[in-house]
Structures are given as C-alpha cells and as structure tokens.
C-alpha cells in the first residue's frame, strides 16, 4: 500500500475499516498512532500549511510503505497506521521518530525544533467504530501533549483480540488417558482462544466424522498407532486437503524410533511426544503454538 495523506474523512474511514477486517482474518494487529506537535504554539500560524506538508513528507519517509500517514486538515496532527504492529512495535517506532526528527535537515524549518508527543491504539479486532477510534485517540493525544514532549499514551479499548474458536481432536485408544488429555486441554488457560474438544477412539472414527471440515484452526493430538486407521493415515489424509494449513498436528508415540520420528515430521507433524511425556510440556506447547498464530 502506498501512503497517502490529506484524504477526506470518508476515504480514511473506508481504508481503516478494510484494514480492521484484515486484522481478524490474518491474525495480525495494527497500530493507530495519533501524533501531535508539543510546541505547536512556537510555529508561525501563517506558514502552517507549508509546515504541515513538510512534516507529512518527513513522516512518510520514516514509515514503511505498508504503513499509512493521514494528516488532520489544518492541524499539526497526524494519524499513522502501522501494519503488522502492536503497542510494542508502535512504541519502538515513536522512539525512533523522536530521535530522528532532531537530527533531520530535510525538514528545514528555520532551526525551529519540533517536539512530538503521541498516543497509540493497538487494534486487535474489528469491533469499535472509526469515529470512536478517532475520538479516543485524539483524547489520549491531548492528554499526552499536556504531559510534555516525547510522551506516549496508550488506548487499550481496541486492543482486545477476538475470541477465536479452536477445535481440538484427541485420538487415543486408552479411555483413562484420553479423558486425562481432555481435562488437561479443557483446563488450559488460553488468552484469545476457546476450545471445542472432541474425543475419538481411532483414526477411522475421526475421518468418518465431518468434524474436521470446518474452517476453524484445528489441533489434532493423536497416537501414531491406532486401530483401523492409524495416526499416519490421518496425517496423510488431512495434509492432502486443500486447506490443510489450519491443522496443527501433535503426534504421540510409544516407540522411540528416530526414523519414525523423522518420517512423522516429514509427513507434516508439528510436534512429536514420546510416551511417557510430561503433561506440562504438552500444555506449554499447545499454548505457544496457538499464541504464535497471532503475530
């Protein structure tokens, strides 16, 4: 995307709404940075449009071309959208900006020093209107500006990521252990996910069900050897499906054969546990894998 500036309100709104929809689909947050000039009063009112233009060009140079810079008409204020960024990335971006504005001469503002302050809103869902974003963002910016130069205020209203449903399938023959796995996953404390768990006795039962057809992210925890259709059969079958990326496969085995392990990874397993294994290890692996889905 090419950075644009000085667009009308409606266009900005449309662009940002489109971005917000993308946030959910691609599981990547964006950050809205509201930037203002702390020492605005020191600037010549006559030459304000020219100054605005110069700083906007400067900001454009400082951002990546996937980011966008919008200016507020007639004010020394900007809205910068940083793609694939959260609060942390936005903060780092601002710190860089605060420093580089001081030793930059393209600005050429007759030795007039510019001191920024900003507010940051991380957007992690597609709820909340554009108007609300602008209102809360500018409010926080005002507060930030009132605190002093080079300040950052955070708006957390839009940060909350949507609760995503993850399907979990447990394929294990032993009834007791299957129940243990069920309870363990049920009790997992996941931040942005809720789990929908189903148990299966073997691969056949799983493949016969229509459970795995939906588009949900799907974690499969299964034994390598199962009656009827084994874990490898299941693995092969689901990896042949067109949308197989949604499957995360954890294999469990009693055989500690490296050859089998290598083969399972080659066939598309994401993790491999040799029994007996520590349930805590399984828990953190599940958490880590799911949390990594959000970048």
């Amino acid at each position: 995307m090419i950075s644009k500036y000085s667009y009308g309100h409606t266009v900005t709104k449309q662009i940002i709404n489109a971005l917000k929809a993308h946030v959910v689909r691609s599981r990547t947050a964006i950050a809205a940075v509201f930037l203002g000039v702390y020492n605005e009063s020191e600037f010549d009112v006559e030459r304000l449009p020219e100054t605005l233009e110069k700083i906007t060009v400067f900001l454009k140079n400082e951002t990546r071309n996937t980011d966008m810079v919008f200016s507020f008409a007639g004010k020394l204020k900007w809205l910068i959208i940083l793609s694939q960024s959260g609060e942390r990335e936005a903060t780092a971006f601002l710190r860089r900006l605060y420093v580089s504005v001081k030793n930059n001469d393209i600005l050429d503002l007759e030795n007039q020093e510019i001191l920024f302050s900003a507010s940051v809103a991380e957007i992690g869902n597609d709820e909340g209107s554009f108007e609300k974003l602008v209102t809360e963002g500018t409010l926080a910016l005002t507060e930030s500006l009132s605190k002093g130069p080079e300040q950052i205020e955070y708006v957390t209203t839009f940060k909350k990521r949507p609760l995503e449903t993850v399907k979990v399938s447990i394929l294990e023959e032993n009834d007791v252990f299957r129940k243990v796995l069920y309870r363990t996953i049920e009790n997992l404390n996941l931040n942005n996910f809720e789990t929908e768990i189903k148990e299966f006795q073997d691969g056949y039962e799983f493949l016969e069900s229509d459970w795995y057809f939906s588009s949900h992210t799907h974690l499969i925890i299964m034994n390598d050897i199962l009656p009827r259709q084994s874990g490898l059969d299941v693995l092969h079958k689901i990896r042949m499906l067109p949308n197989n990326k949604k499957f995360i496969v954890f294999m469990m085995t009693k055989r500690s054969s490296e050859e089998d392990m290598i083969y399972a990874y080659e066939s598309g397993a994401d993790n491999y546990f040799i029994k007996p294994f520590n349930l805590r290890l399984l828990e953190v692996e599940i958490k880590r894998t799911l949390e990594r889905l959000w970048t």
Partner: peptide
Amino acid sequence: LAYIKNISN
C-alpha cells in the same frame, strides 16, 4: 497404569 505409561510427572 494409564497415568504411568503415558505421563511422566
């Protein structure tokens, strides 16, 4: 047995 054979803890 189900615990011991499957889980190490």
